[in-house]
Design a binder for these strands. Structure first.
Length: 582
RNA sequence: GCCCUUGUAGCUCAGUUGGCAGAGCACCACCAUGGUAAGGUGGGGGUCAUCGGUUCAAAUCCGAUCGAGGGCUCCA
């Protein structure tokens, strides 16, 4: 007990040991249960079982109680090394354990851990005794179906998820975080703030944007468009459907068909809703011959695509069947490739920073086993990605072999206001499509050569990005994004006319403003505006009308009285143009 | 797709052992004319997701379908 072990290792041991305790508890209740695996995971652990029946929340309570009893028995975790045959004998009847034993490499020893009433096949390590576990610092969270080894063709097991910590305080903090996550859930906020909806009768996974949601979305899109024009892009617009020729040529019908909507037949031809924009942008490129003098092309489009996502994986705005990519394709010469990548990455970071994301990390994915394109191009492309990351001073990790079959890529992940990571931007080379479509440009030496093609999406998709932003801000959008920036609230009907003047002035100044001249009392109006998270509320009565000023109630509770109307307009406009918070 | 959970008014939810479908908010009307987070009274609104079954009787029990939620990588 001399030196302190690192917290992470301690936690891992605690969680893993807890999972054994849970398995023991479950076996007490269901002696005939098949036990599978039970690792430590982020924030806790799980264990997979094959059980005679489904578990109820009362069952979880009972398992939890039994675990506490086991922990209080102060049982030692004993490591035992056995031969394969002995192990097989001990786990006779436990089909999953037998499979695991067979999977252990010949040169590794087979170890077991025993804590009294329960022995599990396990590499370890564990805490020394259940004495080192705290019976008040874990909580069984939920059950879920999970395929044995994650494969759809394998049997479905029952997984029990739990969170576990070394002390009750950490548990409490984590449970509070879960509550915070629930409060920020974009599906909940989307409903409360009247931003968007889904309609099962009209098709799951398809988003309906309400006026308030559309306001925000358009603020995002307008900013996006302006910045693309300012950063050397051109906009293109392409159709939503394309004939099978296009998808045969692109290869999507070979490799991507399962994710595509079924074809529509027209004039004896099959048309497919587009799952990607790239083939369309290539058609524009192919419209004429191109010289090296014209390149690079940077063509951007907020292109709405449709993909068949499995019913069970749909999730609010984060996984939908119809979504709008903030897509662009860059076609350039080999000479230009490096500077283009550098520029794309810089631009990506600028965009993410603009939306309030400061903590960004990069993931570089390199060539996988199965891939197309020649090695020189892969190497050059991968190096240019790496150089760009280093130049930007980003922390990054490399996913060796994690690239798509058609090219290496950089993914950018951001951390949101409560520390969760989300993958947004992706920058990918494509060595496949230019070949398939036979794209060329005429170089300075008169020879036709293959251009480099780069796909990139900075926000990912507008829908998903919107969901992430909504959770990041917990619905309290900064003024530049807020659907309504200002709510004008007359103290009583008597002041409707002065309020109307102020409203008109703000409206003419280009602010997003509305006046609540309904029959509610002022208090109720403030409450409503507050619940809709409107950044600024102007409460107008006699005092304001007399002085031709406004009194400002900020969303965060601050209050500033007696500001001239023009001064207030300037203040909001300043916040908006700087994209600042309140 | 698969496992578990789930579906009652626009929203959030009650609904005991099967016995005439409820509340709050929202909406509409009337009263109240108000100074920083819900003023009062009254009213309208539901084929209890859909289809089928059991029963004298089904929101409630059973089955199917559809939707929603939690999951299905983290390698004993």
């Amino acid at each position: 007990m001399a030196q302190k072990e690192p917290v992470e290792e301690k936690l891992e041991k605690v969680r893993h040991s807890m999972s054994h305790v849970m398995a023991e508890a479950v076996l007490q209740m269901f002696p005939q249960a098949q036990i599978a695996i039970g690792p430590a995971i982020d924030n806790g652990f799980y264990y997979d079982f094959e059980l005679p029946r489904a578990l109820s929340s009362e069952d979880l309570e009972e398992i939890s109680q039994r675990m506490k009893t086991i922990i209080h028995e102060n049982k030692e975790f004993k490591r035992i090394v056995v031969s394969r045959d002995e192990a097989r004998k001990m786990f006779a009847g436990q089909v999953y354990k037998l499979e695991l034993i067979d999977a252990i490499p010949e040169n590794e020893e087979v170890s077991l851990y025993n804590q009294g009433g329960f022995t599990d096949l396990c590499r370890g390590p564990h805490v020394a005794s259940t004495k080192d576990l705290n019976a008040e610092s874990f909580k069984l969270l939920n059950t879920a179906g999970a395929y044995w080894r994650g494969k759809e063709t394998n049997p479905m097991l029952t997984r029990i998820y739990a969170t576990a910590w070394t002390n009750p305080k950490d548990l409490r903090l984590y449970l509070q975080k879960l509550e915070e996550i629930e409060k920020r859930d974009h599906r909940k906020l989307g409903k409360e703030l009247d931003l968007f909806s889904f309609h099962e009768e009209a098709g799951p996974g398809l988003v309906y944007w309400h006026p308030r949601g559309a306001r925000i979305r358009l603020a995002i899109e307008n900013f996006w468009r302006d910045q693309h024009y300012a950063n050397g892009y051109e906009m293109v617009q392409t159709p939503h459907v394309g004939k099978s020729w296009l998808w045969e040529t692109s290869g999507h019908l070979d490799f991507y068909k399962a994710s595509m909507y079924s074809p529509m037949e027209m004039d004896k031809a099959d048309y497919y809703a587009k799952p990607m924009n790239c083939p369309f942008h290539i058609m524009i490129y192919q419209n004429t011959k191109h010289s090296y003098r014209e390149l690079p092309f940077r063509w951007a489009e907020l292109g709405t695509v449709y993909r068949y996502e499995k019913a069970g994986s749909l999730h609010g705005l984060l996984r939908v069947r119809g979504f709008t990519q903030d897509d662009a394709h860059i076609f350039c010469t080999p000479d230009q490739m490096e500077s283009e990548i550098r520029e794309v990455l810089r631009f990506s970071l600028f965009m993410l920073h603009s939306f309030g994301f400061e903590d960004i990390s990069a993931y570089l994915s390199t060539r996988p086993q199965e891939s197309v394109g020649d090695t020189d191009r892969w190497d050059a492309a991968t190096e240019s990605l790496r150089k760009a990351i280093i130049e930007q001073g980003l922390s990054y990790s490399v996913d060796e072999g994690g690239g798509a079959f058609y090219g290496p890529k950089i993914d950018l992940k951001i951390k949101d206001a409560i520390g969760r990571e989300w993958q947004l931007s992706t920058i990918q080379f494509d060595f496949n499509l230019p070949d398939r479509f036979g794209m060329t440009f005429v170089d300075s030496d008169g020879v036709e050569k293959r251009p480099y093609m780069i796909h990139r999406a900075l926000l990912g998709s507008i829908e998903r990005f919107f969901g992430v932003l909504l959770e990041h801000y917990a619905g309290a959008f900064p003024p530049w994004l807020a659907p309504e920036q200002v709510c004008v609230i007359p103290v009583s009907e008597v002041f409707n006319s002065y309020s109307g003047e102020v409203f008109t002035a703000l409206k003419q100044a280009g602010l997003r403003v509305y006046m609540d001249d309904g029959a509610d009392r002022m208090n109720a109006k403030i409450r409503n505006a507050q619940n809709m998270k409107v950044p600024y509320m102007l409460v107008l009565g006699d005092r304001e009308a007399q002085g031709n000023v406004v009194s400002v109630r900020y969303r965060d509770g601050r209050q500033v009285n007696g500001i001239a109307v023009n001064e207030f307009i300037a203040l909001v406009k300043d916040k908006v143009s700087k994209r600042e918070a309140l």
